[in-house]
């Protein structure tokens, strides 16, 4: 290229043009990031709607049980297989900046409600059909007052992977949802988190996979069961 030189006067015009272009790039990036996060929230909402329909369908099936055999309604069918990825997706969304907090809380409340519905329905199905599903209710906090919650989440994720038939329902202890607060009251769970409710008994503090296996010796028989699980655990 040709040689070049110039006097060194300030180029105010170029400074302004560069500033406007940079500002435009920033605005586009922020807008695009918000747009993709909104798309994620909408995707989660759609999945939750699907799960809601699944549960409604199962409830209806359950009401029809008098006319059908328990073989028609297996415990596997209650929870949609989408609920596990949904839990992970919600956790991921929670970590993203620029996510509308009120939308996030709405999604979490919806998710918790679906879990409670599923939990109650499973108890009824189990009772009527003489099934013996194993439940764990897990209460955690995201407010920074529960240093062991993250590790408890890892342990429960590992447990769910080891025992696919195990049903783990996880709840944000501080979530403003009356149904959840009722569940907390019924089980008499204090704010000393993390807390696990297993067979109506509350266990506080970090429990490893080995600890839970000791509490639930029947897990050994469940290794081959293939029910879907729910693990919102962080």
């Amino acid at each position: 290229m040709e040689p070049t030189v110039n006097i060194r006067t300030a180029r105010w015009g170029s400074y302004i043009v560069a500033f406007l272009i940079t500002a435009l790039i920033f605005a586009t990036a922020l807008y695009a990031s918000n747009y993709f996060n909104s798309r994620r929230a909408a995707e989660i909402k759609a999945t939750q709607d699907n799960i809601s329909v699944d549960i409604l369908s199962t409830e209806t099936q359950f009401e029809l049980l008098a006319e059908h055999s328990c073989a028609d309604i297996e415990e596997n069918s209650v929870l949609s297989s989408e609920i596990q990825p949904l839990a992970s997706r919600l956790s991921y969304l929670e970590l993203q900046p620029n996510v509308d907090p009120s939308e996030l809380i709405r999604l979490k409340r919806y998710y918790s409600l679906l879990e409670i519905k599923d939990y109650l329905l499973m108890q009824q199905v189990a009772s009527k059909c003489h099934l013996k599903p194993v439940f764990i209710l897990y209460f955690y906090s995201n407010k920074g007052d529960c240093p062991d919650c993250e590790n408890q989440g890892y342990a429960l994720t590992g447990l769910a992977q080891k025992y696919p038939g195990l049903r783990i329902y996880s709840f944000d202890y501080n979530l403003d949802l009356s149904a959840l607060q009722t569940l907390i009251d019924i089980n008499n769970v204090k704010s000393d988190l993390p807390a696990l409710v297993i067979k109506n008994k509350v266990y506080y503090g970090l429990h490893t996979i080995g600890d839970v296996e000791t509490i639930l010796p029947e897990l050994a028989k469940m290794a081959t069961t293939t029910a879907a699980t729910s693990t919102r655990n962080r």
Partner: peptide
């Protein structure tokens, strides 16, 4: 790994987790 152990489950990449934060885009 310490608390959950190692459980390898191959899964297809999910676009949901593609990082679209403004910082990364910039």
């Amino acid at each position: 790994l310490h608390y959950a152990g190692f459980h390898f489950r191959p899964s297809a990449p999910d676009l949901f987790y593609f990082n679209t934060s403004a910082i990364w885009m910039l």
